[in-house]
């Protein structure tokens, strides 16, 4: 018996997808791919270009058609893998900040339980929480910027292109791939009540790279290019405090970081759970969420996600966007006998 049907309304899915996309692009360029230096914000803006055709396909693909099954399966795999990666980012960040003596699974377990609980609230709760975060985030960010204003050095954005165009383009394409798991939630949106004339997803999500670029500019003004110790932990440390500001100013930045990461994680876990339920309609939503959460936690703790993400990141966009394009094309082709009669 299906007790919980995982679905989300359009009004909730767009902010969730927006928050997810912004944060995912930012994390990729600031932390995972942090060697891009000064040109990172340009890469963020560039990521919008390849993502728009993908998003247009997503708008066009009807998620309940059979032709969408390969796309659905691919989205599920990618989203679950990325959710595992984001979970490991949260655990690593918590370990860096203060809990370095706590084993990783003890840090992952409460977060996994929290995410599971949130997914069980269903999609509207996740989306509305994203709306709340969109309202609160600018206030916290303004506080961070105001308190650290004298420590920003705009000259550290120069030279403008950082490591050069090849690096920027590569990072931009990689970042555009991260639109895919972050916006998977839109794929499972209940669009039955859609009215004509509403702006499609692509119009909304084109702002995500712009916001990510703004955040990256702020980050790049904190520490110069060529900084020693390009470890992930050093980049996280530079993100949360630029080293030249008093440590208590780290507090609002930590709140911003963790809340943003939790929103992204919940959004992706929900999308993966809903996709699983679409693929296996006989399963209850709670079971799907539990399966996805347990799988993500296990993957995250295995340490496999870092290498896997690094491996698939350059190809992610091409693979999924091509599948989406194919699905939308095949969906539009009428079957024999269904052509309207002329005359």
């Amino acid at each position: 018996m299906i007790v919980l049907k995982l679905n989300i309304s359009r009004i909730a899915s767009i902010p969730a997808a927006f928050v997810g996309a912004t944060i995912r692009i930012f994390l990729d360029l600031a932390l995972d791919g942090g060697t891009i230096h000064n040109g990172a914000w340009i890469a963020a803006l560039l990521s919008a270009l390849p993502s728009i055709p993908y998003l247009l396909c997503l708008d066009a693909v009807q998620s309940d058609k059979r032709m969408a099954i390969p796309l659905r399966f691919m989205l599920l795999s990618v989203t679950a893998l990325d959710a595992a990666h984001v979970l490991s980012i949260c655990v690593r960040a918590a370990g860096c900040l203060t809990l370095d003596y706590v084993p990783a699974h003890f840090l992952a377990l409460p977060l996994a339980l929290a995410v599971l609980w949130c997914v069980w609230r269903n999609g509207d709760a996740v989306g509305y929480a994203a709306i709340l975060w969109i309202r609160v985030f600018p206030v916290l960010l303004l506080l961070v910027v105001t308190l650290q204003m004298r420590h920003y050095n705009a000259r550290w954005l120069l030279p403008l292109l950082g490591n050069g165009f090849p690096d920027i383009i590569r990072s931009g394409v990689r970042a555009s791939g991260w639109f895919i798991p972050a916006t998977a939630i839109y794929y499972v949106t209940d669009r039955s009540g859609d009215k004509s004339g509403r702006r499609p997803l692509s119009a909304w999500l084109s702002f995500a790279p712009a916001v990510a670029a703004l955040l990256l500019i702020l980050r790049l003004m904190m520490a110069p290019a060529g900084l020693y110790g390009l470890t992930w932990e050093a980049r996280l440390d530079a993100l949360l405090t630029n080293g030249r500001a008093p440590l208590y100013l780290q507090l609002p930045m930590m709140l911003v970081f963790f809340f943003s990461a939790f929103h992204l994680l919940t959004c992706e876990c929900f999308a993966a759970s809903a996709l699983l339920q679409r693929l296996a309609p006989a399963l209850d939503g709670r079971l799907c969420a539990a399966v996805v959460t347990v799988a993500c936690t296990g993957l995250s703790l295995s340490g496999f996600t870092v290498t896997a993400v690094d491996f698939i990141a350059p190809w992610l966009y091409v693979a999924v966007a091509a599948t989406a394009a194919l699905s939308s094309l095949l969906q539009g082709a009428p079957k024999g006998g269904e052509r309207p009669c002329n005359g």
Binding site: R155, L158, N163, G164
Partner: peptide, 16 residues
């Protein structure tokens, strides 16, 4: 801090 001003004349870190 003259170096920070000078770096703006260049497009990439490698050139600088």
């Amino acid at each position: 801090g003259f170096a920070e001003s000078a770096s703006g004349h260049f497009v990439t870190n490698a050139q600088w």
